[in-house]
Computed example of a mutant assay.
Amino acid sequence: MAKRKDYQVRLQNLRSRRYDVALSRAVVTESFSKEARASVKYVYEAMEPIGASYTNKSYDEAKRVQAQIDTLPIAFQFDYQGSVPLNTHIKLHSDLDILVVRTIANLKSGFTADQLTSTINLLKDARTNIEAKLRSAYPTATVDASGCKCLNISGGSLSRSFDIIMCSWYDNYAYQQSGLKQHREIWLHNKCKFGEFDNPFSHMHQVNLKDTRVGGGYKRIIRLLKTLRSDAAPQIKLSSFLITSVMYHMADAEYSQTNYSVAAARRMSMLVNTRNHLDKVVTNQAYRRGLSSPDNSEKLFDENDATLVTELRKLRQELDDILMDLAEEVESTSYYQKTFSNPSEAFLALSKASVIYG
Rank of each mutant, 00 (worst) to 15 (best):
A141G: 01
V207H: 08
E61D: 08
D211R: 02
V281L: 05
T274R: 00
K280Y: 01
T274C: 02
D295E: 06
Y170A: 09
R15A: 15
L116K: 10
T283L: 07
K237S: 14
S239L: 08
S230D: 15
T71M: 12
R288L: 07
N106P: 01
L23M: 10
D295Q: 03
Y173L: 09
R25Y: 03
L180Y: 13
I98Q: 06
F32K: 03
A26M: 03
K149P: 00
R102F: 05
L86M: 13
L116S: 06
L92K: 12
N296I: 13
G179W: 13
I74Q: 09
N208T: 08
A327R: 08
K352I: 11
H183E: 08
G217M: 05
K41T: 05
K63L: 15
A145S: 15
T258N: 07
Y80R: 07
S354K: 11
V330A: 11
K338F: 09
N13P: 04
I130T: 12
C148N: 00
I104M: 15
R289P: 05
D95R: 05
K237E: 15
V101S: 02
I165C: 02
N273A: 10
I50G: 04
L348C: 01
G217L: 00
N296L: 15
K91Q: 13
Y19W: 11
L23H: 11
Y173M: 08
I69K: 14
A349I: 04
A349Y: 04
K352M: 13
Q177I: 15
R18W: 02
P49K: 10
T258D: 08
S31V: 02
G82T: 05
A353F: 01
L224E: 06
L134T: 03
S161I: 01
A67L: 08
N106V: 00
R18A: 05
K5Q: 01
F78Y: 14
L180P: 06
K34N: 10
N121T: 11
A2K: 14
E318C: 04
L308D: 08
Y80S: 03
T339V: 13
E345Y: 04
L312K: 01
L224K: 04
R17W: 14
G156E: 02
I243Q: 12
M47K: 03
E61S: 08
A264R: 11
A264M: 10
A75I: 10
S154K: 14
Y138E: 00
L122R: 09
I186K: 01
S154I: 12
G147K: 00
L107R: 06
F197T: 07
A46H: 03
S354H: 09
I243R: 07
T119I: 07
R229S: 13
D279E: 00
H249Q: 09
A265H: 14
A232M: 08
I104Y: 12
R316P: 02
Q8T: 14
T142I: 09
N259K: 08
I104F: 10
H183N: 11
L312P: 06
I153W: 10
S24I: 08
I69H: 15
T283Y: 02
V40P: 01
Q8S: 13
V281R: 02
F241V: 06
I322E: 01
V214W: 02
D114I: 06
I90D: 15
S332G: 03
I90M: 14
Y19A: 05
Q177H: 15
H189P: 01
H249L: 11
H277L: 00
N129H: 09
